[in-house]
């Protein structure tokens, strides 16, 4: 039984830690970039973001079918159901090209994040 308590404590501490970081970041203004998914295509298919800055990516799925925003380079993965929006935080990143795609329709849903100085 003792172990349970210990784990609970660890978990609570972890959550507290996470929450403290979360609130800290909320204070700083994060630039927002918007992407739309329409007919299994990303609009725009290429977004340019500044290096070393964290940004908030708002992905709006205008299709009735769900889509999964995925990028191996960005290490991001998120399901966006039909006719809904999703928020994904990206960065801060070093300059370079970071392709992303829609995992459910990867042949057409292709895009790239270009990070520039």
């Amino acid at each position: 039984m003792c172990l349970f308590h210990k784990k609970d404590q660890i978990f609570i501490l972890w959550v507290a830690f996470i929450l403290s970081i979360h609130s800290g970041h909320l204070l700083a203004g994060t630039p927002v970039f918007e992407i739309e998914i329409k007919n299994h295509l990303f609009y725009p298919a290429e977004i340019e973001i500044p290096a070393g800055v964290k940004i908030k990516l708002r992905v709006k799925n205008l299709d009735p079918t769900p889509e999964e925003f995925e990028s191996y380079e960005l290490n991001r993965e998120k399901v966006i159901s039909g006719h809904s929006k999703a928020t994904i935080f990206i960065g801060p990143l070093v300059p370079g090209q970071y392709p992303f795609f829609g995992e459910f329709y990867p042949k057409t849903a292709q895009g790239i994040v270009v990070v520039k100085e």
Binding site: I21, H22, Y72, K78, I88, F89, P92
Partner: peptide
């Protein structure tokens, strides 16, 4: 990773690239 994506954990650079 999920918590980083939700911005609950700070972003850290990739340690290596073995792709």
């Amino acid at each position: 990773l999920q918590l980083t994506q939700a911005d609950w954990l700070p972003h850290t650079q990739a340690l290596w690239d073995s792709s």
